[in-house]
């Protein structure tokens, strides 16, 4: 545990941010807490991934994978569309910081850095989307057995 305070802040912050996001996007009341927990889980896995893999791209992928899997489970338990949970679940993973540093590098005319952070940001977004899409496709392929929402 290199930085316990940072981890705690990350967990509390992601939960709170997802809760507010849920209010903004009008998540049904009975799903609000569960969707915020999905966001917290995704971010927790992301933080573990960053510590272990030292790659934000890989960490985002497994974070989104965890959030998407949990969403499918919650969707069946709560009998609600999985998108309610998955869309709140990926909110903390969206690479806003990468977008900012790409933009900053462009403004400062550091084009090398702009390209490298830009590509990384794109990769992260693609990985998040891919993870969600993969889980959706697999559960829908198995759908007849596990009965989708």
């Amino acid at each position: 545990m290199a930085d316990l305070m940072g981890v705690l802040k990350g967990l509390a912050g992601s939960f709170g941010a997802c809760l507010c996001f849920g209010l903004l996007f009008h998540v049904p009341k009975r799903c609000l807490l569960a969707s915020a927990l999905t966001g917290l889980t995704g971010y927790a896995v992301y933080m573990i991934g960053v510590a272990l893999l030292e790659s934000p791209v890989g960490a985002s992928f497994i974070g989104a994978l965890a959030a998407a899997l949990l969403s499918e489970i919650l969707a069946r338990r709560q009998k609600a569309p999985a998108i309610i949970f998955s869309m709140i679940g990926i909110v903390p993973l969206v690479p806003g910081a990468g977008l900012y540093s790409t933009m900053l590098a462009l403004v400062l005319k550091e084009y090398d850095r702009a390209v490298s952070t830009g590509v990384e940001t794109l990769l992260i977004s693609a990985c998040i989307a891919l993870a969600i899409a993969l889980v959706t496709l697999v559960t829908r392929a198995l759908g007849h057995r596990v009965r989708p929402e």
């Binding site: 802040k9 912050g13 941010a17 507010c20 209010l23 903004l24 009008h26």
Partner: peptide, 24 residues
């Protein structure tokens, strides 16, 4: 009704604030 007016303003402010905490 979708959340409008004050509720969306509060929710948006709250989420940005919590993101700041999340980033440390």
């Amino acid at each position: 009704k979708t959340p409008d007016g004050w509720r969306s303003v509060l929710a948006s402010g709250g989420s940005a604030g919590m993101f700041a905490v999340m980033f440390g």
